[in-house]
């Protein structure tokens, strides 16, 4: 499995043809207390860069963009009762949704962990 990152602070972990998407720990730390997560519908077709989810914090609402194109196969229903999971565990149990990739080639344009860490370090 490999994990990739976007400049908009999403991560995607790819296992076979399915990628699990969330926001990075850096992103949750910037947003502060998260109070609500709007998730995409299972079966929804998404394009790379589409706004497919909204993370609402006490101070602001933030769009989450899909890092890849494909079909949504799952969404993290645990967040309905516990949106704060995105604060406490953004890069594991605070995942948002899963996408079946239609174009795995899109992953090549994303950053790896080292690249993302360097990117955040420069912000």
């Amino acid at each position: 499995m490999s994990r990739y990152f976007t400049e908009d602070h999403e991560w995607i972990e790819v296992d076979g043809e399915v990628g699990t998407v969330g926001i990075t720990d850096y992103a949750q730390s910037q947003l502060g207390d998260i109070t609500f997560v709007e998730l995409p519908a299972v079966g929804q077709q998404v394009g790379k860069g589409d706004s497919v989810s909204v993370v609402d914090s006490v101070k602001a609402a933030s769009d989450v963009y899909s890092p890849v194109s494909g079909e949504v196969t799952d969404a993290n229903q645990a967040l309905a009762d516990e949106p704060e999971l995105v604060n406490s565990d953004a890069e594991v149990s605070g995942w948002l949704f899963r996408v079946k990739l239609s174009d795995p080639g899109e992953l090549g344009k994303l950053m790896d962990r080292a690249g993302y860490d360097a990117y955040v370090g420069g912000l």
């Binding site: 908009d8 101070k59 769009d63």
Partner: peptide
């Protein structure tokens, strides 16, 4: 993701 609105 993108913070579209920070009131204040």
């Amino acid at each position: 993701m993108n913070e579209s609105r920070i009131p204040d």
